[in-house]
Amino acid sequence: MTLDDLALRLRDFAAARNWEPFHTPKNLVMALSGEVGELTELFQWLTPEESAAVLDDPGTAHDVRDELADVLLYLVRLADVLGVDLLAAAEAKIDRNEHRFPPESVG
């Protein structure tokens, strides 16, 4: 599945439920923020070592995957509503970051 396929599936999902009036950029950003908060909560009090091993526990792994999926779904839906090509935007951002943060020279 591509991001375009995912966006189309989400668009169809929202349309089938008449949710488009509620899928405003403001509402989608707020929902996205809430999902990021739920993901953050899963890592909040973990040590760096525990956070690196978070997928070792099946229950926690399931929760992390669900919250990551929620974040992705709201982000893709928001980009679709705004008409933003996420892959193009990400590529452009990486290009800018490569210029802003050149590799350190070894020496």
Rank of each mutant, 00 (worst) to 15 (best):
residue 70 D to C: 10
residue 2 T to G: 01
residue 67 E to V: 01
residue 65 R to E: 15
residue 85 D to K: 00
residue 76 V to F: 01
residue 75 L to Y: 09
residue 42 L to T: 03
residue 65 R to V: 15
residue 48 P to A: 07
residue 57 D to K: 06
residue 68 L to G: 08
residue 89 A to E: 08
residue 3 L to Q: 05
residue 83 G to M: 08
residue 34 G to C: 03
residue 31 A to F: 06
residue 74 Y to E: 01
residue 6 L to D: 09
residue 59 G to C: 01
residue 18 N to P: 02
residue 97 N to D: 14
residue 39 L to D: 03
residue 14 A to R: 06
residue 83 G to R: 13
residue 24 T to W: 02
residue 44 Q to C: 13
residue 20 E to V: 11
residue 37 G to C: 01
residue 102 P to D: 13
residue 93 K to L: 06
residue 74 Y to R: 00
residue 23 H to N: 13
residue 96 R to V: 05
residue 103 P to D: 04
residue 97 N to K: 14
residue 57 D to R: 10
residue 7 A to D: 03
residue 41 E to T: 11
residue 76 V to C: 07
residue 84 V to P: 06
residue 74 Y to Q: 01
residue 22 F to L: 14
residue 82 L to S: 05
residue 90 A to E: 09
residue 46 L to M: 15
residue 38 E to T: 05
residue 92 A to M: 02
residue 50 E to S: 11
residue 60 T to V: 11
residue 91 E to C: 05
residue 71 V to W: 03
residue 73 L to E: 15
residue 26 K to W: 14
residue 59 G to P: 02
residue 59 G to F: 07
residue 60 T to M: 14
residue 10 L to D: 03
residue 37 G to Q: 07
residue 8 L to C: 10
residue 8 L to K: 09
residue 7 A to F: 01
residue 78 L to Y: 04
residue 80 D to G: 08
residue 22 F to P: 05
residue 57 D to V: 08
residue 22 F to G: 08
residue 88 A to G: 04
residue 61 A to N: 07
residue 86 L to V: 09
residue 53 A to T: 06
residue 79 A to H: 07
residue 74 Y to V: 01
residue 42 L to A: 08
residue 99 H to Q: 13
residue 46 L to W: 06
residue 2 T to S: 09
residue 32 L to C: 02
residue 10 L to I: 02
residue 23 H to C: 10
residue 29 V to E: 14
residue 22 F to S: 12
residue 101 F to S: 04
residue 1 M to Q: 08
